[in-house]
Write a protein that binds this DNA or RNA. Sequence first.
DNA 1: GCCAACGTTGGC
DNA 2: GCCAACGTTGGC
Length: 163
Amino acid sequence: MNASHNRYWLLKSEPSAFSIDDLANCPEQTTHWDGVRNYQARNMLRDQMKPGDQAFFYHSNCRQPGIVGLMEIVREGYPDHTAFDPKSNYYDPRSSQESPRWYMVDVRLITKFRRPVPLAELKKHPQLEGLLLLRKGNRLSILPVSPDHWDFILSLANSANTH
DNA sequence: GCCAACGTTGGC
DNA sequence: GCCAACGTTGGC
């Protein structure tokens, strides 16, 4: 697969559980993205996300939800071992080593934005019409992002203006 | 804390 | 297969 086929994603995390600063403090600023327990998201982790793909880090369920930085996928989908651990919050007895139900990828921090792009600002721009994050009732923790939307959001993050 | 939207579970 | 009940997500 040629690099021009790399895809773009958005990964949500509640900062109270795992924030972009937590990622920045990981060894090599790299970690596994565990705990996803939704089949649609699982399928993307397992089947579609590839090393070289890039992803926005999104802070959800917090005072100021929004996109706070950039990551790269550095390892393709593999079984989420937290599902095997009875002590883990993400334990799922229906998943087994022989037949794993849940998957994760490894991610590496590329940049934490100097200026996060709040959800409220994303909503203002007609250029972002169709962005899955903005769809009413959307609760998926992993979403694909189109190249056009990706570029536009990056330009917002790089903009010196305060909107 | 509220509540709309959504996914999952399980009885039938 | 239907669908009500329930649990979770996540903005506000």
